[in-house]
Design a protein around this nucleic acid. Structure first.
Lengths: 212, 212
DNA sequence: CCTACCGATCGGTAGG
DNA sequence: CCTACCGATCGGTAGG
């Protein structure tokens, strides 16, 4: 009888998921390996078996988010190329990516505050192609007169990405801050700001025009 | 001969200033009282003499930022009431407040991530009158046809405030992320987005219109 | 304000 | 020899 368990590939995954939740809620420094271990009912040493240091665990958490990004966004970009309304497709997928798991937004925003240099590397590296593609869409929209001529395409994309991340990350602050519907109003207004600052008044396709 | 120093009111101020820098850079949990003490060449126990706990020091740091806000913004609001271009006056002062000391933006953003409930209290309390006043300006601008009818005034003000704070707090991420001028481009694009998403096309006063 | 400490907990590593 | 851990404890440092 062999009682030894076979290697369980879900254990590292569960550790990463727990660490993501805790890093998002409290930050990396404020989260102990013991707290991560408690979340998955393991000892601290068991966690250190899978990730030889806390730093390795941090890299794994960021890597999982980036992998998910690389998995989701390119597909969307291809769909957007065929879509009749690229803005709604791209903006919807961008905010959908972070809204699907707000912890992603919180981890990324904390990382930007704690380690700006590493965040800059992500922008210059893995995120760059996606950013350039969307900026390219805006440039062709400008050529067609669909988008404002004074939009700075790259800066616009980076800013809107930052807005979405910040809005999702701090969403709980809005919960009832203005009124009971404050979050829904804020989400809607964010989309409106992104849209209205991009499109020229005579927007060819209807649905989101001012009602007046 | 009395050699004892008279109480120095600048010591607490210097401690708050040092704590603000460290909280902004590393976060509250990752900053030790010893690190704060080292910054002002005191012992940890001396810091605890002025602020009986780390929590008291945190409250003092936030209080100093809020006091500065209450000191600066109402004055601006009165000036804006008389100004010919309220948007530039209000947006300029808002971004100026945080750009004057980016640590303010970083501390506030970290606080929003770490303690959303307390941040919500600020929004519902001390920040509320300022927010309502600016929203009121937007409403009268809408009545005059100057601003888009589908702007949600309160949501717009809160979102733009969040954008400014996030942009200032993460500014170092942008340093050279796109090109050597990335930060200046981002700042300019942020102002453009806030402006273009608010004003109707036929803006009565020139200076910031699209050039085409 | 300092010296001298406390209970606890930190990230990480030992042998088995 | 491997994996997947365990109980115990390392040297330092946390807030107070």
């Amino acid at each position: 009888m062999v009682l030894a368990r076979s290697p369980d590939p879900d254990v590292p995954r569960a550790i990463i998921a727990a660490a993501t939740r805790l890093f998002a809620a409290q930050g990396f420094d404020a989260t102990s390996l013991q707290a991560v271990a408690d979340e998955v009912s393991l000892t601290k040493q068991a966690v250190l078996h899978h990730f030889p240091s806390k730093e390795h665990l941090r890299q794994a958490v960021l890597g999982a988010i980036l992998a998910h990004w690389n998995d989701t966004l390119p597909r969307l970009l291809l769909a957007a190329a065929a879509s009749e309304d690229r803005f709604e497709a791209v903006f919807g997928e961008l905010s959908g990516f972070f809204a699907a798991d707000p912890d992603r937004a919180r981890v990324v925003l904390r990382e930007a505050l704690d380690r700006p240099a590493e965040m800059r590397k992500l922008l210059r590296g893995p995120v760059r192609p996606w950013l350039e593609a969307v900026a390219g869409y805006i440039r062709s929209g400008q050529a067609a007169g669909k988008h404002h001529a004074d939009v700075d395409p790259e800066a616009y994309v980076v800013q809107v990405m930052l807005f979405v991340i910040s809005a999702v990350a701090t969403a709980s602050v809005m919960q009832g801050a203005l009124d009971d519907d404050a979050r829904a109003r804020s989400d809607k207004e964010l989309a409106r700001i992104a849209r209205a600052s991009l499109f020229t008044p005579a927007r060819p396709r209807g649905g989101a025009l001012p009602t007046r």
